[in-house]
Design a protein around this nucleic acid. Structure first.
Lengths: 356, 356
DNA sequence: TTGTATGCGTTATCAG
DNA sequence: CTGATAACGCATACAA
């Protein structure tokens, strides 16, 4: 490129000193209107853009916000990222996106390397076995603010924005119970993730309150992806007695359950009811449409970003833990077993489809 | 944070000059092994990270690759981004992600501002009405390399990586024709996008070859999102005669078609067949499972990134236009009208999935 | 109110 | 081979 225009050239063109140019750009001192206009004109006509590198070096801070995500390919995350980007953009910040692949090492690498860009702040969705907390603790006495999203890493004492996981799982399970299911199975996420644990807790609380108890092997741990959901479901659906309903702790795993159900020649919801968590965009288009706990991804993103921006602006309150409400979206993947509640229709179908 | 450790501290600790430290870090001159080790040790024990800001300022180039995307929330893009990130990461580059929201102004803003971070290269999926080409032309005599993805902006003469749009649309349409459909409708993307045009061309070529002609109003232009697909489909499904098949030029719009179909009390594929384009992850889970042209998002990303990295390394060949192959995935959203062509088998399958 | 000068942390040039 | 030293482009303390 035609070597980028610098402040010096603006200064020459406007016939002022380089310091004055800086002052009008940053509003850091009063400048006579006449000069100010000359500077502004020069900037416009030369198409000047301040070097973020030089500025960042000097100020020891850039307008970058680093966002660390396990895997942008997980369909829950893009909405969050988008929410973040929208408020960051409006606040004048740019987003650097890092995929950790759920690898704590890669996360750690990014945390280290990106630090040298002097970002204004961090937004992180921790990797599955993140040791973020310890790493940050050791390096950051008064580093840029960090807010965690979606999951709370062990030992993490800082800000967190997530969804009401326990409550969501509770309402999902309660729904299953109300529909007459008693043989309930659950496919959890990795249990060192707080959100996975919370969802399991919600499930168990609903069970306990209804005085329903289940076999321990009805609780299967998987990895929040379709593949592992499929495997867990396959195990579950081969058990005797077969569970009549499966709560998959995210929609990706619910898809796996759906797949396993079909492959075993079973039908949802006649043979097995399924409820998911996340309510991804496609949940209403699956066959049958998936009943799922809605998670407001975009709002999570905007909320987290706003919190971060406040911190960047110097807000020094005590760490916040913001839990956004979730909401059960009832669709067609849950059958009604108790003839009492809604009419006998599904009961009959149930019998008709009894396979082995 | 404890003020970040600098080269100067490394130099002191290793008892060498600051220049020597730089040399061992960059391998820019031979250093006596003894000293080299002392430096390396100092780096390790102090946890030194070179300042990317200072380095970028000095070298006039950073290890940043800026990726510009219309909307990360469009489920086709995350895979592309992921592909990019994977190869960029391995090549030592970091990704800055910018959402333009399909707004050419925002795109232009990003192009301008991010330039001041001296990125090593650009990867851009142009906004709907991008004027990228002219903007870049005017500012970049020998700026960092740019490769376009998925869409080719008007006037763009540089590298492009995309999918074989025409061929994909052709095969989709051919499939519809083979299944006996003659009343074919198409919902295109915005026709100032090359990919939308290409897909329409493929559709029309298949029609022409089969000597089938359709009413002009069977060609509806929409905006590649669900909403506009829904609207276009609603118009289409109210026409007389009603089209027996709709080719939606992406899956998001196909979802809109599905929705419209249901709302009008019609059934897919009995009343109307649908084929999409993209083959998003959820296509096999919709009701009915969507027949769609598969687009290898991840590979598009890796291919584009590799091309960019080559350019960054100085590869100076003439501009490349790489079209990756697409492939029609046949599922259950297309009904067979002519009992003659393929055997009754697919007809039966259609029926089996009537559950909804 | 405006100009001058220093330094941010590197790399790169040039002597030694 | 190694060590000074001058930029890189900007913000800022200080002088005028």
């Amino acid at each position: 490129m035609n070597p980028p225009v610098t402040m010096r050239q603006i200064a020459e063109r406007a016939e002022v000193s380089i310091g004055t140019v800086s002052h009008v750009i940053n509003g850091t001192a009063k400048v006579r209107e006449k000069l100010r206009q000359r500077v502004l004109d020069a900037i416009r006509s030369l198409g000047y853009q301040p070097s973020q590198l030089a500025r960042g070096l000097r100020r020891n801070q850039t307008n970058i916000v680093v966002m660390i995500v396990p895997d942008i390919t997980n369909p829950f995350f893009p909405a969050v990222v988008r929410g973040v980007e929208d408020v960051a953009y409006k606040g004048g910040f740019r987003l650097v996106l890092c995929n950790t692949d759920n690898d704590a090492q890669k996360e750690s690498f990014y945390l280290n390397e990106m630090r040298s860009y002097r970002p204004a702040g961090w937004l992180v969705i921790p990797a599955t076995d993140s040791h973020m907390a310890t790493q940050l603790k050791s390096s950051a006495i008064a580093g840029p603010p960090v807010v965690c999203i979606d999951r709370q890493p062990p030992d993490w004492k800082g800000d967190v924005v997530l969804v009401a996981n326990e409550a969501g799982a509770y309402s999902a399970t309660q729904h299953l119970l109300r529909m007459g299911h008693r043989q309930l199975a659950v496919i959890t996420g990795p249990l060192h993730l707080t959100n996975a644990v919370e969802r399991l807790k919600g499930f168990e609380r609903a069970l306990a309150e209804a005085k329903v108890s289940i076999e321990p092997e009805y609780i299967q741990e998987a990895r929040f992806n379709r593949q592992s959901g499929y495997q867990a479901a396959t195990r579950l659906l081969r058990m005797l007695p077969r569970p009549t309903a499966i709560f998959a702790c995210n929609d990706l795993m619910a898809m796996g359950v759906l797949l396993a159900t079909r492959e075993l020649g079973l039908h949802c919801p006649e043979d097995v009811s399924i409820v998911g968590f996340d309510d991804l965009d496609f949940a209403e288009f699956t066959a049958p449409a998936l009943t799922s706990v809605h998670q407001p991804g975009y709002q999570i993103g905007t909320t987290a970003a706003r919190l971060l921006l406040d911190r960047i602006d110097g807000s020094r309150g005590s760490p916040q833990k913001i839990a956004l409400p979730s909401e059960l979206k009832i669709r067609h993947s849950v059958a009604c077993l108790s003839p009492t509640v809604p009419p006998a229709r599904s009961k009959r179908r149930e019998a008709a489809f009894e396979i082995r």
